[in-house]
Simulated scan of single mutants.
Amino acid sequence: MSPFVPGTSIRIEGRAGGPLSGLTFAAKDLFDVAGHPTGGGNPDWARQNPIPDRHAWAVQALLDAGCTLIGKTITDEVSLGILGENAFEGTPLNPAAPGHVPGGSSSGSASAVAQGLCDTALGTDTGGSVRVPASFCGLYGIRPTHGRLDLTGMLPQAPTSDTTGWFARDAATFARVSAVLLGEETPPARPTRLIVATDAFGIADAETAEALQPMLARLKRLVPDWREEVMAPPGLAAWSRAQRTLQPVEAWETFRPWVERDNPRFAFNVARGLVLGATMPEAERGWAALTRREARGRLRGLLPPGTVLALPTTPFPAPKAGLPLAELEPIRALINLLCAQGGLAGHPQVSIPGATVGGHPVGLSLIAARGADALLVGTCLALAETA
Results as ranks from 00 to 15, higher is better:
22 G>H: 10
25 F>S: 07
28 K>S: 13
35 G>W: 07
43 P>A: 11
43 P>E: 11
58 A>L: 07
58 A>P: 01
59 V>G: 07
63 L>Q: 01
66 G>M: 02
80 L>N: 08
81 G>H: 11
85 E>T: 12
108 G>P: 03
110 A>I: 05
112 A>S: 10
113 V>A: 03
117 L>F: 04
117 L>P: 01
123 G>I: 13
135 S>P: 03
139 L>D: 02
144 P>Q: 13
151 L>M: 12
154 M>A: 15
156 P>L: 04
159 P>G: 03
169 R>E: 11
170 D>N: 15
183 G>S: 02
187 P>C: 04
188 P>L: 06
200 A>E: 10
213 Q>S: 10
214 P>T: 08
221 R>V: 11
221 R>Y: 00
222 L>G: 11
223 V>K: 04
236 L>E: 09
239 W>G: 11
245 T>N: 12
253 E>N: 10
257 P>A: 05
257 P>Y: 03
258 W>R: 02
265 R>Q: 10
283 A>I: 07
286 G>W: 06
287 W>D: 14
287 W>S: 05
288 A>N: 14
298 R>M: 12
303 L>N: 08
313 T>K: 09
316 F>V: 03
332 R>P: 04
340 A>Y: 14
342 G>Y: 06
344 L>D: 10
346 G>P: 05
358 G>Q: 09
365 S>G: 14
382 A>N: 05
